[in-house]
């Protein structure tokens, strides 16, 4: 299929995928807690309501920044499937995450600011991994585009076990799951009210939510890059990872930022960095 056509397809399908995933997540979480839980389509109802609500921005730049957050998050996924260099998308992805930080930081209120700073720490913790992962995938397959990696005869995951293990940890950050949900979480009961979304109302939260759906879909794309020989297997692997994340989310308490940063960097350096080192030594 033409990669230029895949990009708009991603833009359309990713929110459905991310929204459904969130819905299933909420049902499974509820079941783990002995509850029935909401309908699977609940995230779509929520988004629909948020878009219908009145909005009262605290300052004029929050909404433009949040729109930028959504657009660049969607773009980084669309760029991946559209055939733009994989490593480059890591920087677009970082820009998207940064725009959310700035939106919350611009409000300059105690809860939003603390959430923004913590999100920045989370970004600092996770960014090296994504660069290393995409670099390693390019190195293994000798390809720099999505289509190239999928068509490559090399199976990526078996060669990159360290990266795969580190992915489990870093995905916890990006999916905003406990113990790494220090900036905001899907659960209302935390010490920061809602962290970086504290001062957003109405459709502003809707934008954050929509961007997060794109982000989930992006993570699924990353799994597809690692399990490049079989898309169904990749989807299965992603769902297993996601289930594990829900399990961890429901059985751990939130960590301090120091632990988040140190543990993620240690794992990235040792597992991902070690994997990259081994790859360079064996492959060249």
């Amino acid at each position: 299929m033409n990669p230029i056509l895949l990009a708009p397809l991603f833009l359309l399908v990713a929110p459905l995928f991310g929204g459904l995933l969130t819905g299933v997540d909420r049902v499974i979480s509820a079941r783990m807690q002995g509850r029935v839980g909401p309908p699977v389509l609940q995230p779509f109802y929520d988004l629909g309501k948020l878009l219908q609500k009145d909005v009262r921005p605290v300052n004029p730049i929050v909404e433009p920044l949040l729109l930028g957050h959504v657009v660049f998050m969607a773009l980084s996924g669309a760029m991946i499937v559209g055939g733009v260099d994989l490593l480059f998308t890591a920087f677009v992805f970082a820009l998207a995450a940064l725009l959310l930080v700035l939106a919350a930081g611009s409000v300059n209120s105690p809860y939003s600011f603390t959430g923004a700073e913590r999100e920045l720490i989370v970004l600092l913790a996770s960014e090296p991994f994504f660069i290393l992962m995409l670099a390693a995938v390019s190195k293994v397959t000798g390809e720099s585009t999505f289509a190239g990696v999928l068509a490559s005869p090399e199976r990526v995951a078996p060669i990159l076990p360290g990266i795969v293990l580190a992915f489990l940890l870093v995905a916890t950050i990006k999916l905003r799951k406990s113990p790494f949900d220090i900036s905001t979480s899907h659960h209302p009961h935390q010490e920061l009210v809602r962290g970086l979304t504290s001062d957003m109302s109405g459709r502003l939260i809707g934008w954050v939510e929509l961007a997060h759906w794109y982000e989930s879909a992006l993570l699924a794309l990353f799994v597809l890059l690692l399990v490049n020989w079989s898309p169904p297997l990749a989807l299965g692997a992603f769902l297993v990872v996601y289930f594990l994340e829900i399990l961890v989310d429901n059985s751990t308490s939130r960590a301090k930022w120091q632990l988040v940063l140190q543990s993620t960097w240690a794992v990235t350096l040792v597992l991902a960095g070690g994997n990259v080192l081994a790859l360079f030594l064996l492959r060249s």
Binding site: R56, S198, S201
Partner: peptide, 19 residues
């Protein structure tokens, strides 16, 4: 709690007036 589970109806306890 599991006995009443208002999240069944999409009800969420937000703890934030803006939400």
């Amino acid at each position: 709690t599991p006995l009443y589970d208002v999240e069944r109806f999409g009800i969420v306890n937000t703890g934030n007036p803006k939400h």
